[in-house]
Computed example of a mutant assay.
Amino acid sequence: MALHFVTDDAASAQPGDAVSLTGAEAHHAAAVRRVRVDEAVTLGDGRGVWLDAVVTASTPKQVDVRVTARAEAAPSTPRFVLVQALAKGDRDELAVQAATELGVDAIVPWQAARSVSRWDAKADKGLARWRTIVREAAKQAHRAWIPEVEGVARTADLVRLAGTAQVLVLEPSASVRLTEVAAEAADGREVVLVVGPEGGIAPEELAALESAGARLVRLGETVLRTSTAGAAAISVLSAAHGRW
């Protein structure tokens, strides 16, 4: 499979046009992935544009390609959103990476009551880190759309969201399995998966979300880590909605 790169210049490029990769993207292409002249690659803008191209020149500072074909991918519907609780170590980052590779459309960091990690004074840094992880994971997975990473949410934000979206809260003690409701029509609404931190979602948070219209669901008989629960749930949804 051809290597895939992302550049804003892909948005307007047409077959026959020349496009240049510079900066970190060029260094990655030439010095890390070692692309060569006449090698086939693909480019995208992260917003649905997909270009087939051939390398015409390759140096660590600039890689030039010639576009041979253009296509545009529509965004997926219904939209899958992962609300991922902040977690200690790199567990939330692993969750974000896997979710992106598996097809999530947007990610919301959640400062849950039991989150050990706190972004209060470093939200901008944390968001930048997650966005970098998402961008690289989307490139690795050859995705035409790079998922949005939205601002940090509090539980009150999720309660409001439950009034407009189909919110599914992953909770091991729930009586309903995700597989029982995954294929239900979203009625044009986005499907939001809520994953708690290492210590689980606090009882008062579960009660508030359920009262607002969210559904508590479980994945199976085992309890998954916060780093894997979202990825598993996205896989279930992708199969149920015909993406896979």
Score class of each variant (00 low, 15 high):
R135L: 14
G188M: 10
A106P: 00
A202F: 01
V19G: 09
G46N: 03
V176N: 04
V149K: 05
V32W: 10
D92L: 03
G48F: 07
G48R: 13
E171Q: 14
A40W: 00
G196R: 01
E221R: 13
R47K: 14
S227Y: 01
P203F: 08
D8N: 10
G188K: 10
A74C: 05
V191E: 02
V32L: 13
D105L: 07
A31H: 13
G44F: 01
L3W: 11
P147V: 13
L161Y: 00
S76D: 07
V223G: 06
V83S: 10
A141D: 07
G126R: 12
V108N: 00
I107S: 03
A57D: 13
R129V: 11
E72R: 15
A57T: 11
A95S: 10
F5I: 11
R135V: 04
V152T: 08
P203L: 10
R154D: 14
V32S: 13
W244H: 05
L193A: 07
E25T: 13
G48I: 10
R218A: 08
A153T: 00
W119F: 07
V49P: 00
E171L: 11
A186G: 06
P78Q: 15
A11T: 08
G151Q: 11
V236E: 04
L209V: 02
E180D: 15
P78I: 13
